[in-house]
Design a protein around this nucleic acid. Sequence first.
DNA 1: ATAATAACCTGAGGGC
DNA 2: TGCCCTCAGGTTATTA
Length: 270
Amino acid sequence: MPELPEVETTRQGILPLLKNQQVIKIIVRQWQLRWPIPKAIKQLENQLITSIERRGKYLLFRSAVGTAILHLGMSGRVCVLPIDSPLKKHDHVDIIFLNKLCLRYNDTRRFGALLWTTQNPLEHPLLVNLGPEPLTAKFNPVYLLQKAARSNQAIKLLIMNSKIVVGVGNIYANEALFQAGIHPQRPAKTLNPSEAKTLVTSIKAVLHKAIKAGGTTLKDFQQSDGKPGYFQQQLQVYGRQGLDCLKCFNPLECNRLGQRMTVYCEFCQV
DNA sequence: ATAATAACCTGAGGGC
DNA sequence: TGCCCTCAGGTTATTA
């Protein structure tokens, strides 16, 4: 479900409700996610959540004794509810707080993960090799060009590779490439400095706008307060295959690239 | 080492 | 109504 804007929207929604609140109980109804939830997750009980951070698409719930690492996978969602809220299908985990709120994790497809570490979470095997955050200065045209320089990979796959840059999923990769006027199948090494600059600018702009809009609601993404995101109203290409390009009015093409739907304009994206 | 693709899992929607 | 197929916001593991 979520790319960086949806995860960041979620983080911003739950942070004011949960920061410095004490966990009193963790209820796991389904232990089998992408990886089994470690029993040690119970160490979070009785701890205060000192911060909720985001690294790529991971949320980090820090406490004095360790950090819970949450990834929402394709279909995961969290919301903050009153403790007595009725259960829905696929409500796998409740983290119950002293202030009578419950952080509830729902994930239809169970591609998400909930892990526990007592080490620096940024050194966790899943996080340590991640590329830079796209909205920081570390992600810049010189960096992207250097990573692209010897790569025969399609540029769309390169920008979706979390070792290159985190947080860019299928929606925003399609959108950023359209905005930059770059064909998704271009071998990465054919990008020139000017195109790298445009692409970096487009990725940052698309992600910024999507965060501002509260993320993209396609099927059922909700912000933590239950409201949908509104970025889908600004989508230029994603889900618009066969419809008119908003720049040149020719029909948008679609292809499968790395087993993901890729939508683009044959005329505007070179 | 790099690159394609199979796999994890559930549900919705379309065609017959 | 039911069966079979394809598709879905992600990422790792396996194969070539």
